[in-house]
Design a protein around this nucleic acid. Structure first.
Length: 806
DNA sequence: AGCACGCCGACT
DNA sequence: GTCGGCGTGCTC
């Protein structure tokens, strides 16, 4: 008999790594590995996850207080995935397991106090003699009302802090936190016939005429043998009648969970599409793999508009046919309503959509539907990867190169890596899709880690748009200083005349990107961050895009007192102004973080644009994603090298992906598309290859660069960031750490680079210094690091496979 | 994460 | 001589 459980307590800290042992009380003897429980921990009650059982009991153990669900939350696959994650990304098992819990924890704890039963009131009176009257009043209140929450006390009395502290110190009150389970299931009544149809019919016939309600209920039950609460209400049958029949043993009253579903409503099945040859060829490879139930990974390298979504849908249909579940990851749910709509059209209520706007309750319901097998497909951002699907058959990652798949807070996992780990453990298929695969992914595909499935043709053989590169240095040489070059202006004039539409991309919001004093060269910077302030025109205010702080525009330069303060660099607002000047009759709509505050703002703007209410859509990278508007025949890229100038090794990759994606928006209908790219680096391979839609060319160039500098895929990176609010301390600590690392990680194929200050040296008054580790043997190095004391230091961030090294 | 224990500065 | 600062260590 195992009566002891090993439990990971759900506390968000790296310093608790080992499980704790608790007794399993007799009434909870069913509790097994994977269950979520409530345990006493110190003087608190916390959530815990059972990860092991052992037979012998150690004396003095505390007991599990309760279970949090009526089934084990973690199955073996989820537990093993969490272990893998904690091991690979150097986080605690608790931090990894929390990812699988909606809202990170299944309980809500409220601080509460009560008076101990053994309290000596005479002694207390003496103790409180020279204290304010309030002390006694509050103590009496706590005594009379049992455990009283801190919020309740704060509402009723003023300045309770000192009193609480005093009482705890003298043991007049003790903490007795109140714990409530989160995301309780809503349930509804369901009544079932407890006897056979024949018997019921017989009884119904013999019932006295006066019992009309009971007879009606039995009659109603005869055809289906069960009725829901809603049906009972429509039959006007009361609770009393139901109770009567239940007492006679004719019916059973059950409670069944109901699920909140903000996407409810059956959708019509989409018409079967005729697949292209390339789609069929891809599916010929994918479908057998799903049937095999052995891990296999595919990379669909498909140009924009080649019909990847249809391949996803058919693959998911196959998994569902085999009664296996599918996880579909998209970079950002708000920007991908089209793919969600297509899945819902094809699979109706079998689809569960996860997004950040769902309440914790809705999230719980979605999770429960998946767990109960009531839904088989989950679509969402990277967190959907942790859905409780027990029959995992397929994981799809759309636009796999997107940086949003990397979580930028601990645990700093990459969805692609976790997907492959979870799929390996489940014997599932992974399907990655992109027009511009990440260099690492494509490299792995060529090494045979992913089966490569090329899709080079657009659906209906629509040609790729023709791209013109405009050298902005030449524009300037010809005396043109506008942010809109002559070729771009010409293109826009032409398409406006034809009543076609255009998208303009500029990866910077605001009006101007920096504000400079022409007298002394001083650039206005944020007080809390080491970054220049951005001028926002409509409000005439300077804003920091890192800490969001607003500053008034100074009349004179704070350095030299000069009045020559000028705005430089173009943001979306400035381009909007320029476009309005050039095309006063054109209807222009701007889409960036500043205009998409609301819940469905993206969708609204895109829908209005798609419906033809605007001629030009202008915005940041969000205009380049997830839509398909046939009347868009022109795309203008104001500054193709915005991302290129970042001092990061992925700058070229990011630029190439964005250019390709933006260009792909043009000419999706019957009319051919055109693209104008403005740049100061017209000969850079990210730009030239982007203009030619030539991934291979870009890949070869970029791979050479990566090899030369020993960057991924030729080595793995680990970024160690030291943070502190004192610049000298940060540097001292970083230097010390770098020395320590060079010593303990000294081996061939591993190099320590830095410390060097982060590109934005200070954010919100915190200084950051990075140390970069390059290694060809990641498992050994992570193991070494995991034994160092720095893994427990909270001002040190360890980022395995960082997405940037800034 | 909390919370207690513990060792050094400014106050009745 | 005490109140209180936050460094260190523990929680089954």
């Amino acid at each position: 008999m195992s009566n002891t459980a090993q439990i990971i307590v759900n506390i968000p800290t790296r310093s608790i790594t080992k499980p704790f042992s608790y007794l399993i009380p007799a009434h909870l003897s069913f509790a097994d590995i994977g269950w979520r429980v409530l345990v006493p921990f110190g003087n608190r009650k916390v959530e815990g996850f059972i990860v092991g059982l052992e037979a012998e009991s150690i004396p003095g153990l505390k007991s599990i207080l309760d279970v949090l669900d009526d089934y084990p939350w973690f199955d073996n696959n989820m537990l093993e995935t969490a272990k893998w994650l904690s091991n690979y990304y150097l986080c605690s098992l608790a931090e990894a397991m929390r990812l699988f819990i909606p809202g990170q924890s299944g309980i809500k704890t409220q601080k509460a106090y009560q008076v101990p039963l053994t309290l000596d009131w005479e002694y207390t009176k003496a103790l409180l003699r020279d204290k304010p009257e309030e002390y006694h009043t509050i103590l009496t209140y706590i005594y009379e009302h049992g455990p009283v929450t801190l919020t309740d006390l704060a509402k009723r009395f003023t300045s309770i802090e000192g009193m609480i502290k005093f009482c705890i110190q003298h043991k007049l009150i003790v903490t007795a936190d109140t714990v409530s389970k989160r995301g309780k299931a809503n349930s509804t009544m369901l009544i079932k016939l407890a006897v056979s149809k024949e018997v019921a019919a017989q009884i119904e016939a013999t019932l006295p005429k006066s019992k009309t309600a009971q007879r009606r209920l039995l009659q109603a039950l005869l055809p289906t043998q069960e009725l829901t609460a809603v049906q009972l209400r429509s039959l006007a049958i009361t609770q009393a009648t139901v109770k009567k029949l239940a007492e006679q043993g004719l019916i059973i009253i059950c409670s069944v969970p109901v699920f909140r579903n903000s996407y409810a409503g059956a959708q019509p099945k989409a018409a079967e599409l005729t697949l292209t040859t390339e789609q069929l060829q891809a599916l010929e490879q994918i479908i057998p793999a799903i049937n095999d139930s052995i891990y296999k990974s595919f990379l669909i390298h498909g140009v924009t508009g080649s019909g990847k979504t249809q391949v996803y849908i058919n693959a998911v249909a196959e998994a569902r046919r085999l009664d296996r579940q599918a996880i579909v990851l998209v970079p950002e749910i708000a920007l991908t309503s089209q793919i969600v709509a297509r899945f819902r059209a094809a699979f109706g209520d079998d689809v569960v959509v996860m997004h950040s706007k769902l309440s914790v309750g809705e999230r719980y319901d979605a999770w429960r539907r998946l767990h109960a097998g009531q839904a088989g497909i989950v679509i969402g951002a990277r967190s959907a990867l942790f859905a409780p699907v027990s029959q995992l058959g397929l994981i799809i990652i759309d636009e796999e190169h997107e940086f949003t798949y990397k979580q930028e807070e601990t645990p700093r996992y990459h969805a692609r890596e976790v997907a492959s780990a979870r799929a390996k453990l489940a014997g599932a298929t992974v399907l990655l899709g992109s027009a511009t695969p990440a260099i690492e992914t494509y490299y792995q595909a060529l090494q045979g880690e992913h089966k490569l499935l090329p899709m080079n043709k657009r659906v209906d053989d629509i040609p790729m748009p023709a791209v013109t590169i405009v050298d902005m240095r030449q524009e300037l040489a010809q005396g043109r200083r506008s942010v809109i070059s002559l070729p771009l202006q010409t293109m826009l004039t032409e398409i406006l005349a034809k009543k076609e539409q255009a998208i303009i991309l500029l990866n910077r919001r605001g009006y101007s990107t920096f504000v400079l004093c022409r007298e002394c060269g001083h650039v206005l910077k944020c007080n809390h961050c080491d970054i220049s302030l951005v001028y926002h025109a409509p409000t005439s205010i300077l804003r920091c895009h890192y800490c969001q702080e607003r500053h008034a525009v100074p009349d004179v330069c704070p350095e030299c007192g000069s009045r020559y303060i000028r705005y430089f660099g173009a943001g979306t607002q400035k381009v909007e102004e320029a476009l309005e000047g050039l095309f006063p009759l054109a209807r222009i709509v701007r889409m960036d973080q500043d205009t998409t505050r609301g819940k469905l703002a993206h969708d609204k703007i895109l829908a209005a644009f798609a419906a033809g209410s605007y001629d030009i859509l202008l915005g940041t990278q969000m205009v380049a994603k997830g839509h398909d508007i046939p009347n868009v025949t022109a795309v203008g890229i104001i500054s193709a090298d915005t991302a290129l100038n970042l001092p990061d090794f992925r700058a070229a990759e990011k630029t190439f992906a964005l250019l390709t994606q933006a260009a792909g928006r043009a000419g999706r209908g019957s009319k051919p598309g055109r693209v104008v790219m403005q740049t100061y680096n017209p000969e850079h391979y990210a730009i030239t290859a982007g203009a030619e839609h030539n991934y291979q060319e870009f890949y070869q160039q970029e791979l050479g660069f990566r090899q030369q500098l020993g960057y991924p895929p030729y080595a793995n990176l680990i970024k160690v960031t030291v943070q502190a609010n004192d610049e000298t301390i940060v540097h001292r600590q970083a230097n010390q750490l770098a020395a320590e690392l060079s010593q303990s990680l000294a081996m061939a194929g591993t190099a320590i680079i830095g410390p060097f200050p982060a590109a934005v040296n200070k954010v919100k008054d915190i200084f950051r210094v990075n140390i970069l580790i390059k290694t060809k043997d990641l498992p050994t190095i992570t193991k070494q690091i995991s034994m160092m004391s720095m893994v427990n230091q909270k001002n040190i961030i360890i980022d395995i496979d960082p997405i940037n090294v800034l």
